[in-house]
Structure formats: structure tokens, C-alpha cells
Simulated scan of single mutants.
Amino acid sequence: MASPCINVCRMGDVSGLCLGCFRTLDEISGWNLATEDDKSAIFAAINRRRAEHDPCGEEFRGDCDR
């Protein structure tokens, strides 16, 4: 399974999430050793995080088209 990284590698001060892919540092650092089930769970968490935050807001880059 491909990494969700979009090369916007900057951690949010408040959220502790990457501003590009919405992963935590632990999820990022453990990605290469994660099982397919673990990766699926991370993708589910990313989708929940995107739904909770405005992707075009000041803190999160997400999938903003601006």
C-alpha cells in the first residue's frame, strides 16, 4: 500500500499531525514496518481527521485547491 505522504512534511504545533498527510509522527516513522491491516487503520484515521478539520483552514493543508 502506498504511503499517504504528499511531500508537505510539517507538523502542526497544536494538532501534532502532519499538515500534509494528517499522520502522527509515530504513524509516519512506523509506516514501512506496518502491516497492511495497520496501514488500512491509519488511512481510516486520516479520513476521520480530514473530516474533523477544515482542509483549507490556516493550520491544515489537506486537499485544498486554493
Rank of each mutant, 00 (worst) to 15 (best):
M1K: 07
M1H: 15
A2S: 15
A2Y: 14
S3R: 05
S3V: 15
P4L: 10
P4W: 08
I6L: 09
I6V: 05
I6R: 08
I6D: 14
I6M: 02
N7A: 11
V8P: 05
V8N: 04
C9E: 10
R10P: 02
M11Y: 06
G12T: 09
D13K: 03
V14P: 10
V14N: 15
S15D: 09
G16F: 05
G16D: 00
L17N: 02
L17I: 11
C18P: 01
C18Y: 01
L19Q: 12
L19R: 11
L19P: 04
L19V: 12
L19T: 13
G20Y: 07
G20S: 11
C21A: 07
F22N: 08
R23C: 05
R23D: 08
T24H: 03
L25D: 13
L25W: 08
L25M: 13
E27H: 12
E27I: 15
E27V: 08
E27C: 02
I28C: 14
I28Y: 04
I28M: 13
I28H: 04
S29T: 14
S29N: 11
G30M: 12
W31V: 03
W31K: 03
W31Q: 04
N32L: 15
L33C: 05
L33E: 02
A34L: 07
T35W: 04
D37K: 07
D38Q: 10
K39Y: 13
K39V: 02
K39T: 04
S40R: 03
A41P: 00
A41K: 00
I42H: 00
I42N: 00
I42K: 00
I42V: 00
I42T: 00
I42Q: 00
F43W: 10
F43S: 06
F43T: 05
F43Q: 02
A44I: 04
A45T: 01
I46E: 08
I46R: 03
I46H: 05
N47P: 03
R48W: 10
R48K: 13
R49F: 09
R49E: 08
R49M: 08
R49C: 06
R49Q: 10
R50V: 13
R50L: 14
A51H: 12
A51P: 08
A51Y: 05
E52V: 07
H53V: 15
H53I: 15
D54E: 11
D54N: 11
P55K: 06
C56P: 01
C56H: 09
C56V: 05
E58G: 15
E58Y: 02
E58W: 07
E59Y: 10
E59K: 13
E59D: 09
F60E: 06
R61L: 11
R61N: 03
G62R: 00
G62S: 03
G62F: 01
G62M: 00
D63E: 06
D63G: 14
D63S: 04
D65F: 07
R66L: 09
R66T: 06
